[in-house]
Design a protein around this nucleic acid. Structure first.
Length: 337
DNA sequence: CGAATTTGACCGGCGC
DNA sequence: GCGCCGGTCAAATTCG
């Protein structure tokens, strides 16, 4: 996945717009307090000279602004190309995940199933442990198989709320409840309602430190769109929609070693955070990659279109912020996408 | 009446 | 081998 690791350093985010000259420009337009007070002809000569100087400065300014505009256009083009390549790589990655999971499922034997998961948990959770090498040596064939993503999400709820229901947008079927030894509060076991097609499971238990916090542990990734996306996509028959079938909650994509997320569901009745981070990238930013940049008009039009569609779309900014923060919080996974 | 949930029984891994 | 423990099953129960 090295190809995913395109360098943002290539994009010079410091716009270097150099606004000072604009102030200088304005200075020309301001009335001069210290005009020559000599005779009329001298005044005319001075004014003519001043106008010529101003004219030259304006032309110069125009030239410079044009150059900046060109620079910005190029930067925006680079950004859009990077965005498109990232999106394509993300789709590829998700498709690979789906295929691997589909190949991996349907082992009726609970033993083999659980041993797979346990091995994955060990590999996933104790990254720093050097003893993992032994396990990977014992099971070299499983090295390349898909690992069940284990993620832990903290949900803050009302303290009076005794239910172990987490509104994360997906539909779950409860199949068990247990009181574990390390925590007096019961642990609930859920399977995705799309099971057995979707292998995702989750465990929900109150935090031992804070009873108002529900700790949800997700295992695996959904191989179907988020229910809200299914509704959104049901009316459209865009081919691209099918390529994102493996969309996963952001929490799951963070992986086990990533930071836990606390969602305050007491303030919003819907899991808006999940929805925000899990939106279908195909539904917005229908920014076609510039195909023909021959004429400046086309360039300008495309740039305007792209800039407006990107900046006006709060989902894009939210997703961008999430992606950036996610990468910053996981410096050791910067090469993985 | 079908779907969803509850809950006790059961299974398998692990440590002693 | 035995007991403990976490996880899952499936019959019973509840709910819409």
């Amino acid at each position: 996945m090295d190809s995913c690791n395109f360098s943002w350093n290539n994009v010079d985010t410091s716009l270097d717009l150099n606004t000072k000259p604009l102030l200088r420009l304005n200075d020309h337009l301001l009335p001069k307090k210290e005009l020559p007070t000599g005779n009329f002809s001298e005044l005319i000569r001075t004014k003519t000279f001043s106008v010529k100087q101003e004219n030259g400065a304006l032309v110069e300014e125009l030239k410079r602004v044009s150059e900046e505009n060109k620079k910005l256009t190029e930067m925006l083009t680079v950004m859009c190309e990077n965005y498109n390549s990232l999106r394509i790589q993300l789709m590829d990655y998700m498709n690979k995940n789906n295929n691997s999971e589909n190949n991996n499922k349907e082992s009726k034997k609970r033993k083999s199933e659980s041993s797979n998961n346990i091995g994955m948990i060990v590999n996933n959770v104790s990254e720093s442990s050097s003893t993992d090498e032994d396990q990977s040596c014992k099971k070299p064939a499983r090295e390349d198989t898909i690992k069940a993503k284990i993620s832990r999400v903290h949900y803050k709820t009302e303290a009076s709320d005794t239910s172990l229901v987490v509104k994360d947008g997906y539909q779950w079927r409860k199949y068990g409840q247990k009181v574990t030894r390390d925590n007096p509060s019961p642990r609930a076991y859920f399977k995705c309602s799309f099971a057995p097609t979707c292998p995702v499971k989750k465990k929900v238990q109150r935090s031992i430190e804070d009873q108002s916090v529900l700790v949800a542990t997700y295992e695996g990734e959904h191989n179907h769109p988020h229910p809200s996306q299914m509704e959104a996509n049901s009316g459209s028959s865009r081919g691209a929609a099918s390529t994102l079938q493996g969309s996963v909650p952001c929490a799951a994509s963070l992986g086990s070693t990533g930071p836990t997320i606390t969602l305050d569901l007491t303030k919003s009745d819907k899991a808006t955070t999940t929805k925000e981070l899990d939106h279908d990238h195909n539904d917005q930013h229908k920014v076609s990659k510039p195909r023909s940049m021959d004429t400046p008009e086309v360039r300008k039009f495309l740039v305007d279109q792209m800039a407006s569609s990107l900046t006006k779309d709060p989902k894009f900014t939210a997703a961008l912020a999430a992606a950036i923060s996610g990468r910053m919080l996981q410096p050791n996974q910067t090469n993985k996408w």
